[in-house]
Every structure is written in structure tokens, then in C-alpha cells.
Design a protein around this nucleic acid. Structure first.
Length: 613
RNA sequence: GCGGACGUAGUUCAGUUGGUUAGAACGCCGGCCUGUCACGCCGGAGGUCGCGGGUUCAAGUCCCGUCGUUCGCGCCA
């Protein structure tokens, strides 16, 4: 027989009764009846109950085994009497009568429980991640993650994509976040950057003629964390040659639809998935109707621009009028069937808007053919009728208003749309993954701080209309240039971002030059790729999916750290491995690095100590 | 960098208006228990109430500072 096991802990059934078997695993739980000891033996596959009774010389020894001891037992599979069958366990019809046992590894008293969920704090769980990962919930999530990645790989291979590895020690890429830097010993004063994404490499692979690339790629960004943002994360990175936007959608939609259908019941609830082709929503339309470039389409409310109504001569609401005269807009969010809602409902939303930095959230509610609410008296009946007609609402409904400069108004209206949907309740469609593509992103945007035009997303995207689109008289006209750039959105999460790339060096130079980057800067930062473009680059494009976010969606888990085996805490510290940590002096010397650390804060206690000393 | 929440036993938490020796559950240790499966019963150990300062006759509780954790903003696809 094998040294450690003949079967796994989820394997034995009635059919095995009478066999002598060997099992290894962890002591999950013990139930000690004095002359009779039950142990739930656990491995990653499941649990088998093993029994030691008073005739066994092992009993006194086994009573000392604590939870999480690793043991190996040999014994006979016996059928349980009908009244003690455990229907909750797949192995519940049998148990193993132990004839021999060996402790493979003792376990100290554990800092939190593995067998049951005791809600231990994240800091403790991360410090003892190996224990945390033994918990059933974590085993399930990590296994799911692995299965998702395996499925993605299979689906990509089936579509003739080749899987590549690209360098980790590389140069800064154009994503715009802070780089993690790695000092070079051989080149004093120079640094590698960890890739924020393999963006340039995948494009270079296209220029190398590989045609269809994918990678489950680690990406690194040195920005502050969030629940759904880590320093290291994984992307399903994809790039294709000789393709248009439509080819990207047509290629990726079956992968996504298939993947989501495969794992749609991971939480136990079977969910419907948008069928390809997914809706394509232009960026401008998304910002108008949903106030977001990652709209949650489960929310049925749609924002309407009603600037024209508040601009009417017979409407005398000065607060909005003055903003409109200054170039602002009014956006309206319908709130259907809220006639039974109390004053508190409206006040609550108003308070929420103040919390968001708005002066408030104006509204009109309609009942008995009349508008009511603080603003209603400024809007005469005729204008109210126009408003109702434009928004497709009537008695029993209400409408909320946001008024600001276009960008800010759209954004706040978007947040209000979510908030109102939530406040009304029961509106958000359940049990679905709703996909869409947001397309026609602007190539440039106005930097609010500097007042200058800069790239809004990926500077390597091809402008729609090609080089001619960049011929403008006024820099501000650049803001109208759209890019062949798109995002894939699911339930309000941006899952993917991509673009048809700029494969022509002259357009590249012009696109950068238009916003003040000299060609020399381009040559210095992206010289390799620019030169590759000059030696025959195919038209190409692709996208990158956030694998972690996809797994989060499948697990219904709002925190990214729950779907990764080993993760850093919110301060980007790995308390298990003790990283980051100080470097040894000889290492620094090798790297020609002298530290210039911030001065430690002087506390009152320190200064008091200094005085006495 | 900024804001909110939290910080009490190994873990998760309770702790009233500031008032006796700071409690519960799980875990741990000891004892009992032959059909449990979240086994049960009896007993016990375990606390720098994050840290520092202040107010007070009296502080886990109030105030100030600080550190830590977490969520968010800024930042970032």
C-alpha cells in the first residue's frame, strides 16, 4: 500500500465497505466520548469520519491529537447504521475503523479556527495565510480561481491563440500609474520597471508576426490600494493582427459568454448571461444615459438631459438657470412609482448628494396631475408636461435633478442613478450578468488641473479617422477625436479595456505631438516599438481582462484579497513573508544606492527624553 | 496626502449615565462520557481594555495626541 493514502477523504462510499484503506489529512474536528473517539479527517477533497473505540490501543494516544494535526490512518471501511448516517457528508454512509495510525505532523494551538468560520480579522488571516487557506471557503474560492484560469486558457487555445511569457524586468510602459522599480547592479543608477501591463511586448509580438497572442499576465502598479485594487494583479492579455474592432468583439464574446455560463452558478445561484453580440454603447451615450463609462445595466433607470426645459423662459429656477448660462447642463433621473415614499426618502437622497459635494438633489414628484416638491413651483404646468413627456413618466413617479458643468453633472447623475435605484429597492435585476461594450472613447481629455489636453486612456490607440483626424486648428478640437478604444463592462464592473492600436509611426508621432510630447521623448521612452513600426507593422489590436475581478464576480466577493491565495494587506505589506523589508548594507553597496529616508517624526515623548538626557 | 469606521482574552464580540473583582461564545488545559458529526456535562487557566497624555474622588467608558487595521477620496484602467 502507498506510504500515505489509498484514497482521498471524499472518496469512500458504501461500495468500499469491507476494504482496508489508508487515509491522510488534517484533524478537522474531534468528538471524544471517552471510550469512543470520532475524528473528522480532512483533505482538500473532503471529509471522512474515522472512529477509534475502546478496544483500540490507539485511543489514549489519539485523544491527545489537537485540531490540525496531520495524521495517517489505516483501517477498515464499515457501513454506518441507518440511524447514524450523516446526510450532509458525501462519505456519510461509511466510516473508517482505525487499526493503525501515525502522526505525520503535530500542530501547535492555532490562532483562529479552520474547521469553522470564526470571522478572524484580515490581518491575522494574512499573517497565517496558510491556515486561512485551509478553510473550506478559501479552498473553494482558490479552486474556482484556478478553474477559471484553466477554462480561459482552454478557450483561448481553442481559438488558435498562442500563450506567451513576457519579461518581468523591463521598462516603464504607457499605463500612467507609478512603476515599481528594480535597481540594476550592472548599471549603476539605472532601474528596471515591473510591467504595469505587457502592452508593448504584445504589440511587438504582433509586429513579429505571431498574429494571435494571449497571456495570463502579472501586472504591477504602485498606486494606493482599494478593496478591488492590488499592487500585483493578473490580466488575461490578448492581442490580434489584421483585425478590426468587430473582430475583437466577435472573438472575445464567446470566450466571456462561455466562461460566465460555465461558472455562473459558482455562488449556488444560477445566473443568466448576456448572449452575444453584447450591446455596444458609445462612450458619449453611456455618460449621458448612465453617467458612467461602466454602467450597471441591471439598473433600469436612464438619465435624460433636460437642460432645454430649465432653459425655457417660463421656468424661473435661478439656481439652475445661472449654471446653464455658464455652460452647465441639467440631468434628470426618473424615480418610478415612489408615491408611497415618505419625505424621509427624498431628504435621505438630498443628504446623500450633499455628502457627494453637490448643493443637493432637487426633485419634482407627480401626483393627481400636479408636480410637487421644493422646485415644482418654479416650473409651470406646461414645462412640467414637457418634462413628463420627455422622460416618459407620469403620476406616481418622481424625477431628480443634477445641475452642473457637463462632466460633473454626468458623473453625479450616474452616482444618483445607482443611489436612487438602491433607495427605491427591488429595481435592480437579480441573477444576471449583464454585459456591454463601451465604444468610441475619446482619444484625449482635458486635464482639469493644468487646463491642457492630454491622452485620456491608452496613448497607443488608433484615432478614428486616422491621421487626418488629428489635423485641428485649435487644441480643444482634439477633445472631439474618438479612438478605436473600448471597454467591456459587466454589472457595473469594468472587466476589460482594449483598443485597435496605432501601427503607423507617423500617426503616433502626430498623436503625441498634438499634446506637446516631442518626438525625442517618444523615441526615448518607446523607441523600440517606434522603430519596430518602421519595419512593417501589421494593423493590430486587443484587450486585457482583469482576471481577479472576474473571479470576484463569480464568488460575489467584494474584496480582491479573498480570491488570491497570497496577497498583501492594504498597505502593500506581506506580513507572512515580511516584505517589503530593509536591504542589507552590502546589497545596497552593490547597487550603488544610498538611502535618503524621511526624517522620523519627533514625538513629545522623544523630546522629553532628550531634555532629561 | 485627506476623511469615516474600528481597536477589550488566542479568535469573534458584549461592556448601560464614568462607579464593586472587565464578561460571553468558540478555542486552550484538567476531569467525566461507547454513536457523535457545531457531541454533551463539570471545573480551570487566560486581559498592558492598542500606546501616551489629560479631565475626574473614580476612565474600557469623556477629551487630546499617536500607532495599527479597514473602507473610501485623491491617485490608478
Amino acid at each position: 500500500m502507498h506510504d500515505y493514502r489509498s484514497h482521498k477523504c471524499a472518496e469512500l462510499r458504501k461500495a468500499n465497505v469491507g476494504e482496508t484503506v489508508k487515509l491522510s489529512g488534517w484533524v478537522n474536528r474531534k468528538r471524544d466520548h471517552g471510550g469512543l473517539l470520532f475524528i473528522d479527517l480532512r483533505d482538500t477533497y473532503g471529509i471522512t469520519q474515522i472512529v477509534i473505540d475502546s478496544d483500540s490501543p490507539l485511543l489514549s494516544e489519539a485523544e491527545k491529537w489537537r485540531n490540525e494535526y496531520v495524521i495517517c490512518v489505516t483501517g477498515k471501511v464499515v457501513e454506518r447504521a441507518a440511524e447514524v448516517v450523516n446526510a450532509k457528508l458525501p462519505t456519510g454512509e461509511i466510516e473508517v475503523r482505525v487499526e493503525a495510525a501515525e502522526v505525520l505532523s503535530e500542530a501547535a494551538v492555532i490562532p483562529f479556527q479552520v474547521a469553522e468560520d470564526d470571522n478572524a480579522g484580515e490581518d491575522v488571516r494574512l499573517r497565517y495565510r496558510y491556515l486561512d487557506l485551509r478553510r473550506d471557503a478559501m479552498q473553494k474560492k482558490i479552486r474556482l480561481r484556478n478553474n477559471v484560469i484553466a477554462s480561459v486558457r482552454r478557450r483561448m487555445w481553442e481559438q488558435d491563440f498562442q500563450e506567451f511569457n513576457t519579461p518581468i524586468l523591463t521598462a516603464s510602459s504607457p499605463e500612467g500609474a507609478r512603476d515599481f522599480l528594480v535597481p540594476s547592479r550592472l548599471h549603476p543608477g539605472k532601474f528596471y520597471a515591473l510591467p504595469q501591463a505587457p502592452q508593448q511586448f504584445k504589440q511587438l509580438l504582433m509586429m513579429s508576426g505571431f498574429d494571435r497572442y494571449f497571456q495570463v499576465a502579472p501586472c504591477f502598479r504602485d498606486e494606493d490600494s482599494r478593496a478591488d485594487r492590488l499592487a500585483e494583479f493578473y490580466q488575461l492579455d490578448v492581442e490580434m493582427s489584421f483585425i478590426t474592432e468587430e473582430d475583437v468583439y466577435n472573438t472575445m464574446e464567446p470566450v466571456l459568454q462561455g466562461l460566465f455560463e460555465e461558472f455562473a452558478d459558482a455562488t449556488g445561484e444560477k445566473r443568466a448571461v448576456t448572449q452575444a453580440p453584447f450591446p455596444r454603447i458609445p462612450y458619449d451615450e453611456a455618460m449621458l444615459k448612465y453617467g458612467s463609462d461602466k454602467p450597471d445595466l441591471r439598473n433600469p433607470l436612464e438619465i435624460v438631459d433636460v437642460t432645454d426645459i430649465f432653459a425655457r423662459d417660463d421656468v424661473e429656477f435661478r439656481a439652475f438657470k445661472s449654471v446653464i448660462e455658464g455652460g452647465g447642463v441639467v440631468r434628470a433621473i426618473p424615480a418610478p412609482k415612489i408615491s408611497e415614499k415618505s419625505r424621509k426618502f427624498f431628504d435621505g437622497l438630498n443628504d446623500w448628494a450633499r455628502g457627494e459635494g453637490a448643493p443637493g438633489l432637487g426633485y419634482i414628484k407627480f401626483a393627481d396631475g400636479e408636480g410637487a416638491g421644493p422646485i415644482a413651483k418654479f416650473v409651470p404646468a406646461e414645462a412640467q408636461d414637457a418634462l413628463k413627456a420627455k422622460m416618459g413618466i407620469g403620476d406616481g413617479d418622481a424625477v431628480f435633478f443634477v445641475c452642473d458643468k457637463e462632466g460633473a453633472a454626468a458623473k453625479l447623475a450616474g452616482k444618483a442613478r445607482d443611489k436612487i435605484c438602491e433607495a427605491i429597492g427591488g429595481l435592480l435585476e437579480q441573477g444576471v450578468y449583464k454585459f456591454c461594450w463601451i465604444v468610441d472613447y475619446p482619444l484625449y481629455e482635458l486635464n482639469e488641473e493644468t487646463g491642457k489636453v492630454d491622452f485620456s486612456h491608452n496613448p497607443f490607440s488608433m484615432p478614428q479617422g486616422g491621421e487626418a483626424a488629428l489635423d485641428v486648428d485649435d487644441e480643444l478640437e482634439l477633445l472631439n477625436v474618438k479612438a478605436h478604444q473600448y471597454d467591456c463592462v459587466c454589472n457595473g464592473y469594468e472587466l476589460c479595456s482594449g483598443a485597435i492600436r496605432n501601427h503607423k509611426p507617423e500617426i503616433m508621432i502626430k498623436a503625441f505631438g498634438a499634446v506637446g510630447y516631442d518626438q525625442s521623448v517618444l523615441e526615448e521612452k518607446f523607441g523600440g516599438m517606434l522603430s519596430a513600426m518602421r519595419y512593417g507593422a501589421p494593423p493590430h489590436g486587443g484587450c486585457a481582462f482583469g482576471i481577479d475581478r472576474i473571479v470576484m464576480l463569480f464568488c460575489d466577493e467584494p474584496n480582491l484579497r479573498e480570491v488570491n491565495a497570497f496577497v498583501m494587506n492594504g498597505q502593500f505589506e506581506d506580513t507572512l513573508m515580511n516584505a517589503p523589508s530593509a536591504a542589507e548594507e552590502p546589497q545596497l553597496k552593490d547597487l550603488h544606492i544610498k538611502l535618503n529616508l524621511p526624517k522620523p517624526k519627533i514625538t513629545e515623548a522623544d523630546s522629553a527624553e532628550a531634555k532629561t538626557a
